[in-house]
Design a binder for these strands. Structure first.
Lengths: 227, 227
DNA sequence: TGAGGCTAGATTGTCAACATTATTGCCGTA
DNA sequence: TACGGCAATAATGTTGACAATCTAGCCTCA
């Protein structure tokens, strides 16, 4: 509390989305957190946010509640909200859960994929390969996210998709850090291509194994970041 | 909308918890849904609930939002909330996710379990066996829930625990129905004992397989309920 | 000088009134 | 009689003000 500054009241007087609706505020705050503008541990005072985004305190309040159960924000009774600081241990836990759930999605996707979708997935794989060759980390990261999203979609497992979406939101920071490790994209790419291959081959069990192998590699990378 | 009655305004004039705080209302509404007092599809009108539980509309509103992202209640913009009716297909989806996540917990538990905890788990197993022999479905159902909870706890995987807790809340109705199927408890018991054995034997992979086998059996039972 | 209590400020929690939106039943018209 | 618009009603969404709660700094007293 003593070291965490409050959100600055000035800087951008007009709201980002133009409107003052709670939906706009939700997106605005979430983006501010995800882009790192509001760092981990940052206090989120309702009145300040209200002034900054030009929305009523009620809207801000509702948004904070929503973010709280997305796991992006922590709330304590009568003590307000702050940006949740996800520890490395938690990041590993999250990745472990992702490992098994993404494995399920991969298996389901392998069972249901159409030829058309397979073509699309392979195209995504090629694009990722190109991005790694070009050393374009941002683009690779974006394609990576798109691939995982597409697999979830193809799997038709909306429950699993919901769980994963929620977990992803909590983990973006660590996720992003990983991709900055030298040599990491190269390893990651191979694993992704393996997942794509197995799904397109309509081999559920192999696809699940490939997905789990990939996440296991992510976990290892995270764990080795513990000094 | 035409066939779903509103929640009756009378019946229990005084609030259940004594207070009018949002926390009490949340618990009260949740319990009313879980006990089946508010059936699936039941409309939840804020003003009515407010009158019934003696809380302000704001508190009820907050509670409904919370329940909505627990997945127990459905909300549509400007059209209010209603008790979510989980279809059989969704119940199967939920069980599939549970399958892999409980598998993870079982594996983790097998890695971390202490001798003391092993003793406790085996005792739970004996109690379940006794309950099945006695034909006490309610007690078996309760022990069942406690076993799964204890395994989650031993696993130390709080992220997975959170995911499972959330999924369980959506599925209690189907879960309960299953245990009423003749012969089902007997099958279920054997699977549970197998999970306990493998965890106590500190065999992570075998424990995961046992947990998945159990949930797969649940899924089959659910699927066969589709006429 | 240190501990305990106390007051002032800041922040969240709650509430009731108002605005907005969707539904329903009715009426006029072809 | 069937259809399309329209007004009345019911419910939710929003806002601003008030009450309860927590934190921090100060002051007293042993």
């Amino acid at each position: 509390m003593t070291t965490t500054p409050r959100v600055p009241a000035e800087g951008r007087p007009a709201p980002l989305t133009g409107g003052a609706g709670s939906d706009g505020v939700l997106g605005a705050i979430r983006e501010a957190i995800l882009t790192g503008e509001f760092g981990p541990g940052q206090r989120l005072v309702e009145a300040d946010l209200s002034a900054r985004f030009g929305a009523s305190r009620g809207s801000v309040r509702a948004a904070l509640f929503e973010l709280a159960n997305e796991g992006v924000v922590e709330r304590v009774q009568n003590r307000g909200a702050r940006v949740r600081a996800v520890t490395l241990e938690e990041a590993i836990e999250i990745s472990e859960v992702r490992m098994v759930v993404e494995g399920l999605c991969a298996a389901k996707a392998a069972e249901r994929i159409t030829d058309e979708q397979a073509t699309e997935l392979r195209a995504l794989g090629s694009a990722m390969r190109a991005a790694v060759s070009a050393g374009d980390v941002m683009r690779y990261s974006e394609l990576n996210q798109r691939l995982h999203g597409r697999i979830r979609q193809i799997s038709g497992q909306s429950t699993a998709a919901g769980v994963l979406e929620r977990l992803r939101a909590q983990n973006v920071r660590h996720q992003f850090r990983l991709s900055l490790i030298p040599g990491r994209p190269h390893v990651s790419l191979a694993e992704h291509l393996a997942i794509i291959d197995e799904i397109c081959a309509r081999a559920p069990e192999a696809a699940e194994r490939a997905a789990r192998r990939h996440l296991l590699s992510v976990i290892d990378a995270l764990a080795s970041a513990v000094h």
